[in-house]
Simulated assay, not measured.
Amino acid sequence: MKKVTLTELSNNIERLLDEILETGIPIEINKNGKLLKIVPIERNDKLKNLIFKPDIIQGNPDDLVNITWEREINIDLP
Rank of each mutant, 00 (worst) to 15 (best):
N30F: 06
I29L: 02
I27G: 03
L77H: 12
G59F: 05
D63Y: 01
N11R: 01
I29H: 04
L35N: 13
I51H: 01
D62R: 07
G24W: 09
I73Y: 10
D45K: 10
N44T: 13
E72K: 08
L36Q: 04
T23N: 01
I29V: 11
P61H: 11
L21C: 01
L35H: 09
I27C: 05
N12L: 06
I73C: 03
I27W: 05
L64S: 02
N44G: 11
E42P: 00
E22A: 15
G33T: 04
R71T: 03
D18P: 08
E28G: 11
R43E: 13
P54Q: 04
K48S: 11
L21M: 10
F52W: 07
P40C: 04
I75L: 07
L17Y: 14
K31V: 13
T68P: 06
T23D: 01
T7M: 12
N12E: 08
N74H: 13
V39Y: 15
L6Q: 07
K37M: 04
L6P: 02
N49M: 10
T23P: 00
P54E: 10
I29M: 01
I25H: 10
N11S: 02
K53F: 13
I75V: 11
I75M: 03
N44Y: 13
L47C: 00
N74K: 11
I56Y: 15
N32T: 10
V39D: 15
K48A: 04
Q58P: 00
L35R: 12
L64K: 06
T68Y: 12
E42G: 01
G59M: 06
I38Y: 07
E14H: 14
L64R: 05
S10A: 14
E42L: 04
P54H: 05
I25D: 10
L21R: 11
N44L: 14
N66E: 03
R43N: 11
I41R: 09
P40I: 04
P54K: 11
D62K: 12
N74E: 12
E19M: 12
I57S: 06
D62H: 07
N66S: 14
P54M: 02
E8I: 08
D63W: 01
I20F: 10
N44C: 05
N12M: 04
I73G: 06
E42T: 05
D76A: 02
I41M: 09
N12Q: 12
R15M: 07
N60L: 06
G59T: 07
L17G: 09
L50A: 12
N60C: 03
P54N: 05
E14K: 15
N11V: 01
L17W: 14
I73P: 01
R15S: 11
E70G: 09
T68L: 10
L9E: 03
D55N: 13
K46L: 11
K31N: 14
L6T: 07
F52M: 00
L47R: 09
I27T: 08
D18C: 05
T7Y: 12
S10Y: 13
N44D: 05
P40M: 02
L9Y: 12
L16P: 00
I27N: 07
